[in-house]
Design a protein around this nucleic acid. Structure first.
Lengths: 168, 168
DNA sequence: CTCCTGGATTTACTATCTCAACTCAGGTGG
DNA sequence: CCACCTGAGTTGAGATAGTAAATCCAGGAG
């Protein structure tokens, strides 16, 4: 029996009982991750997002609301001098924790979909004003024993504490 | 002038000229990444995906086609004994390279959206049959100088070779 | 007062997704 | 030879999500 045949017959984790599916229900459509990307890059106001993304204002409105509802963004009042109170949308910790996801997509896009000139964006270590190394940053898969550079085949999904299985 | 104000006025990279946007045009809707997730976990046949994901067959059909067109999956004929020729969908390298994206979403979901019992899926190092460490695997942001555990604020986007800027 | 501006909401339209039913090619059993 | 089963789709009606454009609305500015 081949691996695949075996896998097909084994008790399988219910795919709906997967954090990735839930994650996608929050950020799994056209705009959410792009909004998060811009927020990670400093955008916070309605107009910032609108200008940077070219998103329709009604959609931006509903997406911002749903990201606030999901706890990814926080609605914070502000007031520019000589202007009325307005709101801006700041990333929560839950929001900034999407950075690896954004970077993973960015890296994949850079590898397979970039212009001939190369990637348009490079993520670097150390803040713009800071001193520091300024080296490019990458995501690395690493196991708890410290092994790194894991080839795809050496990584597998196993049931965790919250696993539910499919009926045989 | 605050950082944010400065950022708003500086020359900005055209957000459409970003690999992440392009990546999202390939895998940025409800099902593609779930299909890739199942494929990474061994699914390859129409019925595998259908049973595991509960996706409507027409959508699965079009999604598989578009993933093949995008080069994420490859359509390979096979024939079970006593059966006619059929096709299965195998990940290409471009497809398996989505693993970090899948894992990033999984980790985020585990942190914020898991059941009380904990995550349902743990990604581990070393294949099921193999000897080896069997330790859980995580994504780590690491810069080329070897710095790791980079706090969100110490990472920034800078223009790469293919950058296009927005008109001031 | 009236106009202007940023931040939305409304409306009308289109595209995409869901669910259910149907097709179609080949294999099997009678 | 023929009815029928199975896996892999296709078709079509209705719901959901996205797009573009117009409108609203609460302050300030003139």
């Amino acid at each position: 029996m081949t691996d695949q045949q075996e896998q097909r017959q084994n008790r399988r984790i219910d795919p709906a009982n997967c954090s990735m599916g839930r994650a996608l229900s929050v950020v799994g459509e056209r705009w959410s991750l792009l909004i998060v990307r811009e927020a990670l890059d400093g955008a916070s106001r309605f107009g910032d997002f609108r200008a940077r993304l070219g998103i329709a204002s009604n959609l931006l409105s509903t997406r911002l609301d749903s990201l606030v509802a999901a706890g990814v963004l926080q609605r914070v009042p502000y007031r520019e001098p000589g202007d009325r109170e307005r709101f801006e949308y700041r990333l929560t910790e839950k929001g900034t924790d999407l950075r690896p996801t954004v970077i993973a997509l960015l890296e994949w896009g850079d590898k397979y979909l970039a212009d001939e000139q190369g990637p348009s964006v490079v993520v670097r270590h150390h803040s713009p004003e800071g001193s520091g190394c300024d080296e490019p940053v990458a995501l690395v898969l690493q196991c708890a024993a410290g092994h790194t550079d894991l080839p795809p085949a050496s990584v597998y999904r196993s049931p965790g504490p919250g696993a539910r299985f499919l009926p045989a």
